[in-house]
Design a binder for these strands. Sequence first.
DNA 1: TTTGACAACTTAACAGTGTTAAGTATATTT
DNA 2: AAATATACTTAACACTGTTAAGTTGTCAAA
Lengths: 210, 210
Amino acid sequence: MGIAERKEKQKQDLRKAILDASMKLFVEQGYENVSIRKIADLIEYSPTTVYLYFKDKNEILFNLHEIGFQKMAEYTADVFTIKNPLVRLHKMGEYYLKFGLENPEFYDLMFILQAPMEALQTFDNCEWKSGDQALGKLKETIQECMDKNLVEKGDVGAIAMAIWGMVHGMVSLAIRNRFDKLVQREQMVPMMNKGLTWLLNVLDASGNKT
Amino acid sequence: MGIAERKEKQKQDLRKAILDASMKLFVEQGYENVSIRKIADLIEYSPTTVYLYFKDKNEILFNLHEIGFQKMAEYTADVFTIKNPLVRLHKMGEYYLKFGLENPEFYDLMFILQAPMEALQTFDNCEWKSGDQALGKLKETIQECMDKNLVEKGDVGAIAMAIWGMVHGMVSLAIRNRFDKLVQREQMVPMMNKGLTWLLNVLDASGNKT
DNA sequence: TTTGACAACTTAACAGTGTTAAGTATATTT
DNA sequence: AAATATACTTAACACTGTTAAGTTGTCAAA
């Protein structure tokens, strides 16, 4: 069935072309400019053709959001070589801040916009795999810190929520312009890192009961 | 000039009617359903009339965002009677979480959506007064904690950023559905409070050097 | 009193959005 | 050769924010 295979490949090619076009619009003009009509223009098909390959726009944005997680994984790839879990935790936070501030559009898609989560809800297996995996790594590192008595023991889930919350909070306040009028532009990034370091320090202090 | 006064009053009345209609749409149907045409329908004027009273939609949303800050102030009104600044800090955090989760639409407008900040940029005095005031209270409390040696001394600005970041992060991840697939629905709010309590505990521990 | 100006408001339109129903070719199967 | 299935398009619906131009009605000066 060589002909059926070729047809299947062509279908997958067009699907990929749609995602590539979406990606191009996304990185060059931001998520607000990813519209079905603009995608259609780029791939030189009619807008309705897009709907033969994706249920709706949310589904396209969900795919871009996944690419964002891949990109983020590149940022944090080397932290897992760090033996000391507390140092690793610190570096994870630093890379998280770095990724968010250097890729605000991707960050938006991954952690702020509703669209990808709305797409998720329509799926059969509606787990948020990307988020679950990222949170998992955080939890593991926190657990390791506790096992090695580097930090005081406690509810890993709650602590992970709080730490993730802190870095996410700072990034999202920054990229949604809530720091603009409150902090000088040059001091923003160093100050965010200082905030993170502060947390890691009090955390460290809480563990040293020896 | 009684007649000029009456005219001025009528203008202000219509301005208020537009805001009231916006508010009604906002609380009943969410910010996505606040459109110029729907506002116009409610006040029974043509859509273009709205533009005689507000520069654009952002300016209307900015006004609603201010109302949100008033509402938030009601939540936190009684914390300032608390003498112990560390206890006060804890309660401020608790009320912040409570407000955000009970008023997700307002929270969105105040801390997530770009629209009010875009309006701000067009103003003459483009300070974010509401945000500045709220952050100020947080900073004061942190400073007081340091002055009384309840927490280790450090950069107040950075620490305020981190603490605000944490509560904002948790609220915004929650209302933008990032916890949905990761944490059981019933455990979400208690877990967020647990995360906050955890931070306050390690903070407390960091201060007890006596 | 008539004219002119100004204020308040509306109509109509522009340029865009996501999405769907219905139609048209082309290619495959019966 | 006829029927069917595939891939795609046209045209439309129902919205969105926003603006240019036109229409009233009121008021002050000629």
